[in-house]
């Protein structure tokens, strides 16, 4: 493990130790107006303050946006990844995959501002929809939850597409063929063969979307205006504006714990559903020795 030493030192010195300080500071307090942190008296008081109504409301809000965003990403990305891996001829696949990545090379703030332009009441989308007669008043979704949701789905969609594409691309087509030969229809083949086999990609994609989305507050502040406060904003505000490091640290620790708990709860739910379905569908082959 000697070659891993530089990386180990970097991650210890610039990740574990600083995070350790955050945890330590979360037990401190703000001594006065001009001072950011005091640690001569340690207490759990900041956690009580961090778990106030504003935080719970904001975190509930963040969780809703993140869960809905992750679900929407999965719903949009799955058919897309399936299409790219099974319906596009193989020689075009890597080129199309590279094209999917192109939006990543534009600054993400400007991409989000691109949405601001599109979604605004006098933007081209609004005008096009009005002249097509689909809507009769100018579009009115900028600075609402819907706009935030569009923005986060857009910014994280790629991280759902990639892992789904990889698992679907590698799946042996003969498995689906076998399922059809055994009399299963398309829907049943999808539900009982393709989808279960793609679970590692689904799980990886959901994690890659959900976790960063919970900490993101910039997308929401551009598209949601004042109406969309995210939990990350509360942490940032304690450091940038209130200069209360202790409370900011406690809020950060609570945020991490809340994210990990949500992920674990989702994992446990998934494990239970899988176990129930397995028990329900278990097949005993007549004459089988094992």
């Amino acid at each position: 493990m000697i070659p891993a030493l530089p990386a180990g030192l970097l991650l210890t010195g610039f990740f574990l130790v600083p995070i350790g300080f955050i945890i330590f500071y979360s037990f401190g307090y703000k001594p006065g107006l001009l001072s950011s942190i005091g640690v001569d008296r340690l207490s759990l008081d900041r956690y009580g303050e961090a778990l106030n109504d504003t935080f719970l409301l904001t975190f509930g809000n963040t969780l809703q946006i993140a869960l809905l965003g992750t679900a929407l990403c999965l719903f949009i990305a799955y058919p897309f990844a399936y299409w790219l891996s099974h319906h596009v001829a193989s020689r075009y696949r890597s080129t199309l995959l590279a094209v999917v990545l192109v939006p990543l090379w534009t600054n993400f703030l400007l991409r989000t501002i691109g949405w601001q332009i599109i979604l605004s009441g006098d933007g081209w989308l609004s005008k096009a929809l009005m002249s097509a007669g689909i809507i009769h008043q100018p579009l009115n979704i900028l600075f609402t939850r819907d706009a935030v949701e569009i923005g986060v789905v857009y910014n994280y969609l790629i991280f759902m597409i990639l892992p789904l594409y990889v698992v679907l691309e590698r799946m042996d087509p003969s498995l689906r063929q076998a399922s059809r030969d055994l009399g299963a229809g398309r829907l049943r083949t999808f539900l009982q063969v393709t989808f279960p086999l793609s679970m590692p990609g689904v799980v990886a994609g959901c994690l890659l979307v959900f976790v960063p989305l919970c900490g993101d507050y910039i997308t929401a502040s551009i598209l949601g205006g004042a109406s969309a406060n995210m939990a990350g904003q509360l942490v940032a505000a304690q450091f940038l504006m209130a200069q209360n490091w202790a409370l900011g640290s406690a809020t950060a620790v609570v945020l991490i714990i809340a994210i990990i708990m949500t992920v674990l709860a989702a994992g446990a739910g998934l494990a239970i559903v899988t176990a129930v379905l397995r028990a329900h569908r278990s097949v005993t082959l007549p004459g089988a020795v094992n």
Binding site: F15, P18, A236, L255
Partner: peptide
């Protein structure tokens, strides 16, 4: 899995 904002404040300090 650590949110970027937490890394950011930890590094600043």
């Amino acid at each position: 899995i650590t949110p970027e904002i937490v890394d950011a404040i930890a590094l600043l300090i």
